[in-house]
Structures are given as structure tokens and as C-alpha cells.
Design a protein around this nucleic acid. Structure first.
Length: 211
DNA sequence: CTACCGATTGACT
DNA sequence: GTCAATCGGTAGA
């Protein structure tokens, strides 16, 4: 297919069958791809957060399975889409079945289908299209319909390697917006990237690792 | 059934 | 920087 050649194959399930923290760090720089009736939209992942199965009171899985979070308990390599404040946010499910961990995608750098994103978001400013977990879902038309959707084929929703993938620095900080478990640096982002969300203070004082 | 609240956003000072 | 609108989902009566 033309599109899968342009953006590479969908990442294999083995990519997701690991600790959420490792997946969160390595998702940076990958391409989140969404094809719908109105066209193709693609963004480069620049910010993620890990939500763990054990000892993480900020995770939706912390109090067990329910109808909303069931995807977190299912197989890895699928989407977990949830609703909050009348908006949607997308995660990728990680680790193995029953280990209810996931990685929230918090921001993208718009790559493909920017005019369509501008229509969906009702703004032209590139910085406002995909900066924030609910904004990127609106730009890519990701809704609860896609909850549980497998990301393993280049069909509706998938993640691909960048064709020119290079080593890049990864910064981390505490997670944004959570009201508990503020002790672990489970947020990962590309430093100095304008499309990263969050307050400047979090993005300025950071630890770095190379990936 | 109702009450509450949040892994947010956009408008505003 | 601050703050209120937002409404689906969950919990509890």
C-alpha cells in the first residue's frame, strides 16, 4: 500500500509487550497514523505518559476493571480511548494480558493532513492542533469508537516508525493533571520541541536520558 | 435514579 | 498566570 510505504509498517506487537515506561520513552518520535473517510492524518509523537499496573494510584486500572477501562486489561498493542471532561484521550495498551498498564499520548507534531486537522479543530494555528491529549484526538478523529482497536495494521489507526529515525534525547518529568501518585517521573517528552504541552516549569527543569 | 468528579481545554486577568 | 464549562462514567442510595 502506498501509505504504509510512506510511513513504514505498523509497529509489531512485540513493541508493546514491554514495561509501559520503556514503551512510553520509545514511542517518542514515532508516527501516530489515522485513516478515516475524510483522509489521512499523521502526527509525530513528542510527549507520552506511562500508567502502571502496580502501585500507581493515578492509573484508571488502580481500582480494578470496569466497563470504561476494560481495554487496559486486554491484550497489548491496542488502543484505550477514554472520555474525560467531555473530551477523548488515547492510550496504547502495554505489557501482557492482565497487566493493566498503558501509555497516554499527550502531544503530536502535525505531519500529514494538516488542513483536515485545522477543520476538525476549528483553528489554523499549528501549535493548537495536537498539543494536548484531547486536542490530538479531535485532530485525528479518535473517539471511543476506536477503544480496543488493534494498532497492528495500517488500516484505521496505527503507529509507525519514522523513515529517518535517529537517536534523540528524551526528557522526563512528573505527569500532568494527575491528582495522586505525583512521586514518579512517568512523563516523557522531546526537549525543546514546541509541540509539547504542559507548563514551562515542568519542561525546563528535567532530567535527560538518551534513547 | 441522582450526585459527584476528572490522565482537559479555552477564555480571560 | 487563573478559572469555569464540560458531560460521560462510576459509585452509591
Amino acid at each position: 500500500m502506498v501509505q504504509s510505504k510512506m510511513f513504514g509498517e505498523a509497529l509489531p506487537v512485540a513493541f508493546y509487550e514491554r514495561d509501559a515506561r520503556q514503551v512510553a520513552a520509545e514511542l517518542l518520535g514515532k508516527l501516530l497514523c489515522r485513516r478515516g473517510r475524510r483522509g489521512l492524518t499523521v502526527g509525530r509523537i513528542v510527549e507520552t505518559e506511562a500508567y502502571l499496573a502496580e502501585g500507581d494510584s493515578a492509573s484508571h486500572s488502580f481500582r480494578g476493571m470496569n466497563r470504561r477501562n476494560a481495554s487496559m486489561f486486554g491484550p497489548p498493542g491496542r488502543a484505550y480511548v477514554y472520555t474525560i471532561h467531555a473530551r477523548q484521550c488515547v492510550n496504547v495498551v502495554t505489557d501482557t494480558v492482565g497487566v493493566a498498564s498503558a501509555v497516554l499520548i499527550r502531544a503530536l507534531e502535525p505531519i500529514t493532513g494538516i488542513p483536515l486537522m485545522q477543520i476538525r479543530r476549528r483553528t489554523k494555528n499549528p501549535l493548537d492542533l495536537c498539543r494536548g491529549p484531547a486536542r490530538l484526538c479531535e485532530a485525528l478523529d479518535i473517539s471511543r469508537n476506536l477503544d480496543g482497536w488493534p494498532l497492528l495494521n495500517a488500516q484505521r489507526l496505527w503507529i509507525a516508525q519514522e523513515t529517518t529515525a535517529a537517536k534523540m534525547p528524551v526528557a522526563h518529568s512528573v505527569r500532568i493533571g494527575v491528582t495522586s501518585a505525583h512521586d514518579q517521573p512517568l512523563r516523557y517528552f522531546l526537549p525543546d520541541n514546541a509541540f509539547v504541552s504542559g507548563p514551562r516549569t515542568l519542561n525546563r527543569f528535567r532530567e535527560r536520558t538518551e534513547t
